[in-house]
Design a protein around this nucleic acid. Structure first.
Length: 485
RNA sequence: GUCCCCGUCGUCUAGCCCGGCCUAGGACACCGGCCUUUCACGCCGGCGACGCGGGUUCGAAUCCCGCCGGGGACGCCA
């Protein structure tokens, strides 16, 4: 059997991490089984959808490294892949259901239904549609139409039937048709078919073999199975992924902080780290290897290994993964990604060569967890007119010799001929130590402060070499001005 | 309210289906130490969980029942 799965988001304007994880699992499942991954846009709700919102989906998927085999932009044999363009197809199947007498018109207004639901809830009953309009006569319908009412189409739900399906992650699930909330709407009064209906048509026509989606769809599944049967379609396999929870264990939503893929991208998470992290949310490889590339994920992924318990979205592990990826990323690519953050932080990079920048990235990369941290750590290399930090000032003031070290080093360096390499730097420092009569922290810390204004930072020889003699002198001058003032 | 799903370290999880190898394993985080002229990295070590109560059994994280807790769904949203 040729495996076909789909990711079917509605264009809401942002890609939620839960959706991203659903897309990922579908993708991994498809690739692992040499199957096809279909992207379908669910935009039947005309009230809210825009071209821009569709692009958000494309961009998020592309960033994550998820490629679709069929979709609105790339086409495919079962298109169109946007529900808004499939209306005529849906009409056809609506007619079929009408012919079979499996649907009927309902003239209840939203207000009436709302009131009904409220009453039922107050009485402690589960809210459900009573089937009020199921047996309306032609005259009654005529009368209601005369009132200006527009009907919806409802699907007749069988009275007492147990609907069973074998969920690939949850196991066997049984629901009695009585629990479905009564006859449900499949076409709105404006003629637009509803999700539960179109999803069945689309999945069937697109020959989807496995429906992998969020757990919140479990309660829709029996309704959909009823429709598959009514239409004579083969029912696909279902796999319902556990929810992603916020810190408070409720369904992850905007109030929990960053929840859109774009936000993670902008903070400077690498797509590889993000994807890797998402994969580990509800799934775990048999061999326990946690740092995995897309290829390795595909190789190991098995829908049966997906955990049935929900997972809390905690970014600590994502941070760790991001560090891991930053340290092993190609320096060229990493530099490309970091430059925008530097520019945004206000650094003028025009005086630095690309090669030099890459070397700075190389020696600072292990310090940051997200790319947006880069300017903080790279500043030491980029900015010569820094402020000497208070604690550094205090350190220098504690012992006169410390200031002397900086002065002596400046003297020494001025008189030094030739390029400043790590070796020559070390040699000069050593000489200064001897002359002033200090060693260890009393020697190195003043030099560090003289060069950076800070008490911590990258390895001094490396810094000195990258800066070069002129810039080091400039910095020493700058520091001394502040320390002697 | 009704139905459905879920319940192992703080977090992600392994183990559960096929009871003993589990004095419950790993990863992240946290704490301590080592390394280091600083910070970080790295290395070593530590802390830390089977929701509760009953059964079944020689033996239960694993099987059964009940309870409790959490979540989700009950739309002319998807």
């Amino acid at each position: 059997m040729n495996v076909r799965v789909r990711f079917a988001p509605s264009p809401t304007g942002f890609m939620h991490v839960g959706n991203a994880r659903t897309a990922l699992f579908n993708y991994l499942f498809a690739r692992h089984n040499n199957g096809t991954f279909v992207l379908r846009i669910e935009d039947t709700d005309v009230e809210r959808h825009s071209e821009e919102a569709v692009n958000v989906i494309y961009e998020a998927l592309k960033w994550m490294g998820i490629e679709w085999d069929e979709g609105p932009d790339v086409g495919g044999p079962y298109g169109p892949y946007r529900q808004s363009e499939r209306l005529s197809i849906y009409k056809e199947f609506i007619e079929k259901l009408k012919e079979k007498g499996l649907v009927y018109e309902c003239y209840c207004t939203p207000e009436e239904l709302d009131a009904m639901r409220k009453e039922q809830l107050e009485r402690g009953e589960p809210p459900r549609y009573t089937g009020k309009c199921r047996h309306l006569t032609e005259e009654e319908k005529e009368k209601l139409r005369a009132e200006g009412r527009k009907p919806v189409l409802r699907f007749k739900v069988p009275e007492d039937e147990v609907i069973v399906f074998e969920d690939l992650v949850k196991g066997r699930i049984e629901i009695n048709s009585r629990q479905l909330g009564g006859d449900f709407v499949i076409v709105r009064s404006n003629g637009m078919p509803v999700y539960n209906f179109v999803v069945v048509i689309d999945d069937a026509l697109m020959k989807i073999t496995h429906v992998i989606r969020g757990e919140d769809h479990i309660s829709n599944t029996p309704k959909q199975i009823l429709l598959y049967r009514a239409l004579g379609f083969e029912v696909p396999q279902f796999a319902h992924l556990p929810m992603i929870l916020g810190q408070d264990r409720s369904k992850l939503s905007k109030r929990h902080g960053s929840t859109s893929v774009k936000e993670f991208k902008e903070k400077g998470y690498l797509p590889e780290a993000f994807t890797n992290f998402l994969a580990l949310l509800g799934w775990y490889p048999k061999d326990g290897k946690e740092v995995l590339s897309m290829e390795e994920l595909i190789e190991r992924f098995d829908i049966k290994d997906v955990n049935s318990a929900p997972a809390v979205f905690d970014t600590t592990k994502l941070n760790w993964l991001n560090q891991v990826y930053i340290r092993s990323y190609p320096i060229d690519k990493l530099t490309d990604l970091i430059i925008p953050y530097l520019e945004k932080a206000g650094f003028d990079l025009s005086s630095f060569s690309r090669d030099w920048l890459e070397r700075v990235v190389e020696v600072t990369r292990e310090y940051f967890t997200v790319l947006s941290d880069a300017p903080v750590y790279m500043e030491t290399f980029l900015k010569d007119d820094f402020q000497v930090q208070p604690e550094a000032k205090e350190f220098i003031s504690e012992d006169l010799k410390r200031l002397e070290v900086i002065k002596a080093f400046k003297e020494k360096l001025s008189g030094f001929e030739g390029g400043l390499s790590q070796e020559s730097f070390k040699k000069l420092v050593k000489e200064v130590g001897k002359e002033v009569g200090v060693k260890g922290k009393n020697l190195f810390m003043p030099i560090r402060i003289g060069l950076t204004g800070k008490m911590s930072g990258p390895e001094l020889p490396v810094l000195a070499e990258l800066l070069g003699k002129e810039r080091v002198l400039k910095r020493l001058e700058n520091s001394l001005n502040q320390l002697e003032g």
